[in-house]
Lab assay of single mutants.
Amino acid sequence: RDEDEKEKIKEALKRGNEDKAKEIAKRANVSPEEYERLRKEAE
């Protein structure tokens, strides 16, 4: 379940949809550090 959320965040970031990614991260309680890591992976 947690991994699904992280995949959704990465997908949103790949599409350049940072607002959606942040919204998912907030809902999934993803830490800022984890969010940054996902953002780097998505580049």
Rank of each mutant, 00 (worst) to 15 (best):
E33T: 05
S31V: 05
I9K: 01
S31Q: 07
I9V: 07
A12D: 04
A21W: 01
E5A: 15
A42R: 02
I24A: 04
E11D: 14
V30N: 01
E36T: 00
E36S: 00
S31K: 06
R15H: 15
E36D: 11
A21G: 03
K26W: 00
G16P: 02
E5C: 08
N29W: 02
D2Y: 15
L38A: 03
P32I: 12
R27H: 09
N17F: 14
E33Y: 01
K20A: 14
K14Y: 03
Y35E: 04
E33M: 04
A28W: 00
R39L: 11
R15K: 14
E18W: 05
K14P: 03
A42T: 07
E43D: 09
L13Q: 03
R1E: 14
G16L: 04
K22H: 09
N29S: 09
A28I: 14
A28E: 06
L13M: 09
P32M: 11
E43G: 08
E41A: 09
A42V: 14
K6I: 14
K26Y: 03
K8Q: 14
K26H: 10
K22E: 08
I9S: 01
D2P: 13
K10L: 10
E36L: 03
K10I: 10
V30W: 04
D19I: 12
K22M: 14
K40S: 12
E5P: 15
E36A: 03
E11N: 09
N17K: 07
A42Y: 07
A25Q: 08
A28F: 05
K40Q: 14
E3V: 13
Y35W: 09
R1K: 14
E41F: 04
A21S: 04
D2W: 13
E5D: 13
D2Q: 14
I9T: 02
A25L: 01
S31I: 04
E34A: 02
E41H: 04
K8A: 15
K6F: 14
R15C: 08
D19R: 11
E41P: 01
E36I: 02
E18Q: 09
A21H: 01
D4F: 10
K6M: 14
K6H: 14
L13G: 02
G16R: 04
K26G: 08
A28S: 10
R15G: 15
D19T: 12
I24W: 00
R27P: 02
E3T: 14
E11A: 07
E11Q: 07
L38F: 02
K40A: 13
N29V: 05
D19Y: 04
L13R: 02
K14Q: 09
D4E: 13
K6L: 15
P32G: 10
E5K: 08
E36P: 03
A12F: 06
K10C: 06
L38C: 04
D4A: 11
E5S: 12
R39Y: 07
K20I: 14
E18L: 10
K26N: 10
R39H: 09
E3M: 13
D4K: 10
A42D: 03
L13T: 03
D19Q: 14
A28H: 11
D19V: 13
Y35L: 11
K8C: 07
L13H: 04
E34G: 02
E7W: 09
D2F: 15
E3R: 13
D4P: 09
D4T: 11
G16Y: 02
V30Q: 02
A21F: 01
R37T: 08
E11I: 06
K22L: 13
R37F: 07
P32L: 12
I9Q: 01
K10E: 03
N29I: 05
P32A: 13
I24G: 02
A28C: 11
A28L: 10
A12G: 03
K10A: 01
D19G: 10
V30Y: 04
A21R: 00
Y35C: 04
I24K: 02
K8Y: 06
K22T: 08
Y35K: 03
E18K: 07
L38G: 01
D2E: 14
E43Q: 12
A25Y: 00
L13A: 03
R1Y: 15
E43F: 13
E23D: 10
K20R: 12
E34W: 02
A12V: 02
Y35R: 02
A21T: 01
R27K: 13
D2G: 12
A28P: 01
E11T: 05
N17D: 15
E33H: 05
E34S: 01
I24R: 03
E23F: 00
K10Y: 04
G16F: 04
E36C: 05
K20T: 10
I24V: 06
E33P: 06
L13D: 03
G16A: 05
R39V: 14
D19S: 11
D2R: 12
D2L: 15
A25T: 03
N17V: 05
E33D: 12
V30D: 01
K14G: 08
K26M: 09
N29Y: 04
E5I: 15
D2C: 11
K8E: 11
E41C: 05
E41L: 09
A21I: 01
S31C: 05
K20F: 13
K26S: 11
K10T: 05
A21N: 01
K26A: 14
K22G: 06
R37E: 13
E3L: 14
E33Q: 06
D4I: 12
L13E: 03
S31Y: 03
R27L: 08
K20P: 03
K20W: 13
K26E: 13
L13W: 00
G16N: 06
E33I: 05
K6W: 15
K6D: 06
K14R: 14
V30C: 06
V30K: 02
P32H: 11
Y35A: 03
N17A: 11
A25G: 04
S31R: 05
R27F: 01
G16C: 05
N17C: 06
E3W: 13
N17E: 15
K26R: 13
K10V: 06
K6N: 09
D4Y: 11
E5W: 15
N29A: 08
L13Y: 00
V30L: 13
D2I: 15
R37S: 10
E18A: 09
E5G: 07
R1C: 10
D19L: 11
R37K: 12
K22D: 06
A12C: 05
D4S: 13
A42F: 07
A28T: 08
A25E: 02
A42Q: 06
G16V: 00
E43A: 12
K8M: 12
A28R: 06
P32Y: 11
D4H: 11
L38V: 04
A28K: 06
R39D: 04
N17S: 08
E11L: 04
D2K: 12
E7D: 10
E5V: 15
R39F: 08
E36Y: 00
E7N: 13
P32F: 10
N29D: 09
E23T: 07
N17L: 14
E11P: 03
A28V: 08
K22N: 07
Y35M: 11
A25C: 04
L38Y: 03
I9Y: 01
I9W: 01
E18D: 09
K14L: 10
E18M: 10
E33C: 05
I9M: 05
I24P: 01
E18R: 06
R39T: 09
K40P: 02
P32Q: 11
K6R: 14
Y35S: 03
R15V: 14
E43T: 09
A25K: 02
N29R: 09
R1S: 15
E18Y: 08
K10P: 00
E41Q: 10
K6C: 06
K14T: 08
K40L: 10
E23G: 06
I24H: 05
E11H: 06
E43N: 09
K10D: 03
A28N: 12
E7Q: 14
Y35G: 02
R39P: 03
D19H: 11
R15Y: 09
I24S: 03
E3K: 13
A12I: 04
R1T: 15
R1H: 15
E41M: 09
A25N: 02
E36K: 00
K20N: 08
E7S: 12
K22R: 14
N17P: 03
E41Y: 03
E23S: 08
E18S: 08
R37W: 07
A42I: 12
N17R: 07
R39E: 09
R27E: 11
E18V: 13
V30I: 15
K40I: 12
A21P: 01
E41S: 06
R15N: 15
E11F: 00
I9L: 08
Y35D: 03
K22C: 05
E7A: 13
K14V: 09
E33L: 05
R27Y: 01
A12L: 10
R37I: 08
A12P: 00
N17Q: 14
E33G: 06
S31P: 10
L38N: 01
K8W: 07
G16S: 04
K14D: 05
K20E: 15
K8D: 08
S31T: 12
E3Y: 13
E18P: 08
K26I: 12
E7L: 14
R37M: 08
N29H: 10
E43M: 14
E34Q: 03
R37G: 07
D19K: 12
K22A: 09
L38E: 02
L13F: 06
K20S: 10
K20M: 15
L38D: 02
